[in-house]
């Protein structure tokens, strides 16, 4: 046993779990759970949310373990606990595996096998399909990455109902279609950073104008998917009207990005506006979904 100088503390282990990603997973899983028909014992609901958060954290830890070499070469990520060497790679891998297996097993015990199975699928999808396979190979990486982030509301829903019906699939689709315009808006005004790191983001490989066309197309598809629950009778008028208003604002901002001719990243005001609004959009859309479900009930 060695008494090395750079010992990790609890903050490093927490950082390994990517807490910001965990917080989005917690919020969307909670919304899926609250919008689902039926009820779950509060103690089991707390355990389920905790396990979804731990599962998302395990996926984040796998991601950092796989990308430690890349992180060490980028200024933004060089201080991460694995990239900087504060946490040894084998300990990080063991930590991620224990958390992943523990989260899936405990979720199965607390709720049902469907929710646990979707959680396991989400972790594997993020770690293998997204991080290892697609991210370093294709500028469409963020499209597939969106699928990885879209699992939590489905898990939350399945934890309550024990099945996956049309509504959780639509929730999945909404996050899936929201991710590209959200991240590409960001990628447009930080494109030089991605180019330096050698990550094939769409603005780097295809330029700003092709990226803006893609943002517009995904924005149209997103708004269509967000409105679908209303005519399908899966959500009420309250949800439909708020989703229509939010969607109109999203389309307006996306159109301004679509017609923008700015090529200097620091001057991309429309892209920054769309990026900021997209976060508020998703938060409000899911929040009103929950309120609407309670009103309908």
């Amino acid at each position: 046993m060695q008494a090395g100088p750079a010992a990790a503390d609890w903050r490093d282990w927490l950082a390994l779990l990517k807490p910001r990603v965990m917080s989005l997973a917690i919020f969307s899983a909670l919304c899926g759970m609250l919008a689902a028909p039926g009820s779950l014992h509060p103690a089991l609901a707390v355990v389920a949310i905790l396990m979804i958060a731990v599962g998302a954290g395990a996926a984040g830890a796998f991601n950092q373990w796989i990308e430690a070499d890349l992180d060490a070469r980028m200024r933004r990520t060089a201080s991460r606990p694995l990239a900087s060497g504060r946490i040894p790679a084998d300990e990080a891998l063991a930590f991620a595996m224990i958390l992943a297996v523990g989260a899936v097993t405990t979720l199965a015990l607390a709720t049902n096998l469907v929710a646990a199975g979707v959680l396991a699928l989400g972790i594997l999808f993020y770690a293998i399909v997204y991080t290892i396979w697609l991210k370093p190979r294709t500028p469409q990486n963020i499209v597939i990455g969106g699928a990885a982030g879209a699992f939590p509301p489905v898990i939350g829903w399945a934890a309550v109902t024990g099945d996956v019906t049309l509504m959780p699939v639509l929730l999945f689709l909404i996050i899936f279609l929201w991710t590209p315009p959200h991240f590409w808006a960001l990628a447009l005004f930080v494109a030089p950073d991605y180019a330096r790191a050698g990550i094939p983001m769409l603005p780097v490989t295809h330029g700003p104008f092709a990226t803006r066309r893609q943002i517009w197309r995904y924005a149209l598809a997103l708004v269509a998917a967000s409105l679908a629950p209303w005519p399908l009778g899966l959500a009420g008028a309250l949800y439909g009207m708020v989703a229509a208003g939010l969607g109109a604002a999203f389309l307006l901002l996306a159109w301004r990005v679509r017609v923008s001719k700015v090529t200097e990243p620091r001057a991309m005001a429309e892209e920054k506006a769309l990026f900021r609004f997209s976060i508020l959009y998703l938060f409000l859309l899911f929040a009103v979904l929950v309120v609407d479900a309670w009103v309908m009930a």
């Binding site: 103690a43 089991l44 905790l50 015990l109």
Partner: peptide, 28 residues
């Protein structure tokens, strides 16, 4: 010492977690 404390905290959290699951399952 830090590792021992961390293990103790994790074990205590697991006891609470499985107690909550048991109570929740019995009440459901």
């Amino acid at each position: 010492r830090r590792r021992n404390v961390a293990i103790a905290v994790v074990l205590a959290a697991m006891v609470i977690l499985f107690y909550a699951i048991t109570i929740g399952r019995m009440s459901a």
